[in-house]
Each structure stands twice: as C-alpha cells, then as structure tokens.
Nucleic acid binder design. Structure first.
Lengths: 174, 174
DNA sequence: AACTGAACAGACAAGTCTGTCTATTTATTC
DNA sequence: GAATAAATAGACAGACTTGTCTGTTCAGTT
C-alpha cells in the first residue's frame, strides 16, 4: 500500500487538483492518505514544503506523459500537434482542472517565493521543450503561448473547443 | 468618503487582487473598509455574493480602460497592438497580479457555479471584442489566445517580455 | 531477546474563518 | 420634533486551520 510519503503526495495531488491548494487542509490529506499527523510532519516540515514536493512530482509525471504522447510521431509538425492532443487527453482524464502550476500560482502570495520558482522552472522547461522541437525562437514561443492559453481556456469553458482551434492555427503556422 | 457598499467593493478589489480570494477574510475587508460587519451582511448575503459584485465591478472598470486605450488609434492593427500595450500598462499599475477573473477561476470549486459563469461571461465579451475588431473568427481567436497567455505569462514571470513578443507576433500576423 | 526507527492515534494550542446577533448611534424625511 | 432607515461596535457560535506534543505500537536488525 505504498509508503506514507507516497500516499501523502498522491492524496495531495488529487485534492489540490480538485479543491485547490488553500482550500485543502492538512487534516483532510492525512485522513484520506491514512497517515498520522506526526508522520506527516516527519516527512514535510510544512504545508508549503509539501506543495513543493507535490509540484516536483507533478513536473516529473506530467513531462513523462507529454514525452510519451509526442514520441508517437516522427515529424516535428506532428509531434507539436500531438502535444495539443495531450492537453485534450489530460482534460478528459482529469476533468478540465487546468494546470496545477498555474492554479497554485493564483493562490500564493509574495512571501511564497520558493513555490513561485518551482512553477517558473516548470514553465521554463516547457518553453525549452518547444524551442528544442522547433529551433526558431519566435515560432516556438508563439506555440508555447498558444499551448498555455489552450490549457487555461479549456479549464475556463470546460471544453476542448479552443484547443482544437489552436491545433488548426498551429497546423497553418508550421 | 463614499457609501459603505462602495468602500467594501473597493477594499475587496484591492485585497482579492493582492492576496487572492480565499486568503482574504471578511474581517479584514470590513476593518480596512471601515464598515461594521452587520452593514456588510446588509449589502451582501455572503462572501461569494461579494465576489460576484466585485467581478461585475471589475468587468466594468477593466473594459472601460481597455476601450480608452484602444481608442487612441484608428486602424485595426494599431488598435489591436494598443490592447497589448494595455496589458503592459495594467501590469505596471497593478504589479503583475494577472487577471482577477482567472485568478479566482483557480480558487473556486464546482459548487460555485454562479461565480464561474460571471468569469465565463467576461471572457466571452473579450473574445467578442477581438471578433468585432477583426471580423475573421480564426484570426480573432488566435489573437484572443495570445492576449490571454500574455497576461498569464507576465504574471508568472513578473515581466513584460512575452507581452512584447506577442506584440511582435501579432504585428506579423495582421 | 533487546534495541532502534518509523509509524501510529489523537489531544491540544492558538489562531483563523463565516455568519448571526444584540444593542446603540447617526442621518434623513415627514 | 418624532419616526424611520441605515449605519455603528462588537460579542458570539461553531467550525475550521497549521503545527506541536505525548505516548503507544509494530517491524526489522543485531
């Protein structure tokens, strides 16, 4: 049944995604993860510390899934279009809850600089991913921006309509 | 010194923007607005009710400012570029706090459907704004998506770099 | 069989939150 | 000047929050 640490992160992933970071309490996390409170604070020194651990885990999971999706094709163009299909896949899998990183970005204050830099690092990696695929920086940033808004707009409207439209735009662009 | 209702909405605007919706309590709002708690609940039946009122007020303010900015030019192209300059202006004015509507989107749960529809209505109006300016739907949605990500990325990186890049992209696009 | 480290349960402190309530004061209108 | 409406202050209920703490149980190792 996994280690307590894993159970905590798995449960937190689910709850942060479903309810948001600030609306999810430690008590609910440990209760649903079947972990004692003392055990929680043995692994994480604070809730923010858990948040960083969660974002790191999410980063690893999310990118490996993206790479899996992209690797289905060989041509750059198809690979990029696959990335947008990955958004649709994730939306359907996770119920249009958007990007964990951007959701938490909206919830943190100036004092939580550590969390902010984890979010920035994640997005920088995504930006680099498109740059490596495409070479040209202006084009890759263009597609990065469309990718980002595709995630957000599908969360907002609980629909893949604008993801599909982005695919059409990107298809004409490359 | 304004009416209590106005003082509440003004204070809430500031605090929701600075600290987020869930992190801002009623007590802080009424204290900083110099309003009694009973007065607050005479004007708003709940915190979510205040949220809706705030978003409506924000909608009015934000759009009127956008229109002012856009109206400085006559050609469609220049007007669209002005809209991106408006993002830069707001970022500098408000300290890269991003979009009130999207920030609250990240904080609400499924039960808060009323708030969600106010956010969706705002973004639909923005989408229509670009459609009216540009006519072509694919192009106007393309620019709408770049506009949205420009706001978010500048909030994320506390910088106007990607807004400027979007301007360059849009300049080549129209 | 004794030791060790990690997990367990759960009480507790100190503070937060929303929303309700009573009771008093101020301002406006008839 | 009396009546009405809207503001005030602030106590209170009840539930929540994070983090600390005590003490117990259990598995693995020597």
């Amino acid at each position: 049944m996994n280690t307590p640490r894993e159970r905590i992160i798995d449960t937190a992933s689910l709850l942060f995604h479903q309810q948001g970071y600030n609306s999810t309490g430690i008590n609910q996390i440990i209760s649903e993860a079947n972990v004692a409170k003392a055990s929680f604070y043995q692994h994480f020194k604070s809730k923010d510390d858990l948040c960083v651990a969660f974002l790191n885990a999410r980063h690893g999971y999310w990118f490996s899934e993206l790479i899996t999706y992209v690797s289905k094709s060989k041509s750059t163009k198809k690979r990029i279009l696959n990335a947008f299909d990955f958004i649709i896949y994730m939306n359907e899998k996770e119920g249009f809850r958007g990007c964990s990183f951007l959701n938490i970005l909206s919830e943190i204050s100036k004092e939580q600089g550590t969390i902010l830099s984890v979010i920035q690092a994640h997005k920088n990696d995504l930006r680099k991913f498109f740059e490596k695929e495409l070479g040209e920086e202006l084009l890759s940033d263009h597609i990065y921006l469309l990718f980002e808004s595709s995630i957000i707009e599908s969360q907002l409207f609980k629909s893949n309509e604008l993801v599909e439209k982005s695919k059409k735009i990107v298809n004409n662009l490359i």
